[in-house]
C-alpha cells in the first residue's frame, strides 16, 4: 500500500547576500530620487551635470510629492 504526504517546509533564514544586494538598491534608489543634484551624471559629464541636473529634474515632482527637501 502506498501513501502520499505533503510536507510544507518554511525556511526563515535570510541570506546575507540578499540583504547586501537589497541594501545597495535601497541606498542607490533613495539617492537618485531624493538627493541627487547632478552628482551621478557628473561622473561622466563633469561640472556641467550640476547645471543640467537631469536626474534632479526627472525626479523633481516625486521629490516634492514624497516629502524630500527640494527648492
Amino acid at each position: 500500500m502506498s501513501e502520499t504526504r505533503q510536507i510544507n517546509v518554511s525556511k526563515s533564514q535570510v541570506p546575507k547576500l540578499a540583504i547586501i544586494a537589497l541594501g545597495i538598491i535601497f541606498a542607490a534608489g533613495l539617492f537618485v530620487v531624493g538627493f541627487d543634484q547632478g552628482h551621478i551624471f557628473s561622473l561622466v559629464y563633469g561640472e556641467q551635470a550640476f547645471t543640467d541636473m537631469y536626474l534632479h529634474e526627472l525626479t523633481h515632482d516625486m521629490r516634492h510629492a514624497a516629502g524630500f527637501p527640494c527648492h
Binding site: 541594501g23 534608489g29 533613495l30 516625486m62 514624497a66
Partner: peptide
Amino acid sequence: AGMILGISVGA
C-alpha cells in the same frame, strides 16, 4: 521616479 523610489524603499 515613483517606480525607482518604490524599488528602493521596497528593498
